[in-house]
Simulated scan of single mutants.
Amino acid sequence: MKRTDFTLKPSLIAMLAAATLLTACGDDNDDDTTVVVTPPAPVMQTFTVTVTNLTANQPMSPVILASHASDAMLWNAGEMASEAIEKIAEGGDTADIAALSVIKSSVNGTGLLMPGMSETLTLTLDEADVASISLATMLVNTNDAFTGINSYTIAGMEVDATTAMKFMAYDAGTEANSEAKGTMPGPADGGEGFNASRDDVDFVHIHPGVISMYDGLTDSVLGASHRFDNPVLAVTIMRTE
């Protein structure tokens, strides 16, 4: 039988090797391909809230402004005040409100809000967290008067949109309105703030106002200038971003 011998040319061997290598690399890429998805950057919204004390001689404790879900309420008229509201209404302490599980973020005022004065607070929120805001502050020349915003919806506000409102004073119903020396933390008395015992009607209601020593409450340390009518607080909300 005739024998036929043949030899592959070096160039052909190189081409076959390259094809085999490319096929192997293609298989590896198919097995190890990872798709990286970059999440979109969060969209932030900024709101400024300006508060003005409308009273003649009732300084207000440092304000707390908080954001939360739309179904959250800090207080309900006719119902018992939470300890968080009791603490701010009797002593201006905002820590328990800030710590509530429903609060997503909060900011405090820089100091006492004096009569006739204004202060602006700013909240910057992820668009996904924009729902409602609340605000609270104590009228410090009282036993347990407070005021503020109770769950106002800011969702859907356009940039540069502004809302102006006025708010009344509430009585926490946790401490009797004795106006007696040593029972109020404000400059008219310099007395006690929060006291855990409750000796009043124990439900939130519209504050009837102070009586003062000049109106027949002989044990009162308050004067005529400490009296107030509703509303006691002006608030302007603006979306700035």
Rank of each mutant, 00 (worst) to 15 (best):
P42Q: 09
N53Y: 10
A155D: 11
D202I: 13
E175I: 15
L54Y: 11
T20M: 12
A14Y: 09
P39V: 11
P39S: 08
A180G: 10
G191P: 09
T153I: 03
N141Y: 06
N29Q: 13
A84T: 05
N177T: 10
L222K: 07
S178M: 07
E119V: 05
A56C: 00
G216N: 12
R227F: 04
A77F: 04
D215C: 09
T52Y: 05
I85G: 01
G78D: 08
P59T: 04
L54N: 07
L8M: 15
G182S: 10
A188Q: 01
G209S: 12
A234N: 07
I149A: 00
M213P: 03
S11N: 11
G91K: 11
P231F: 08
T153E: 02
P187W: 10
G193N: 07
S11T: 15
S118F: 03
L112K: 11
G216M: 14
M44S: 06
S151F: 01
N29Y: 14
Y170W: 13
A17Y: 03
H226K: 07
S197I: 09
T142Q: 08
L12Q: 09
A155W: 01
I237P: 01
D93N: 15
D27L: 13
V201I: 14
M1W: 01
V49I: 05
A161R: 07
F146M: 07
E179C: 07
A145I: 12
T122F: 02
A196P: 13
I237H: 00
T137I: 04
A161E: 15
D5M: 12
V63C: 00
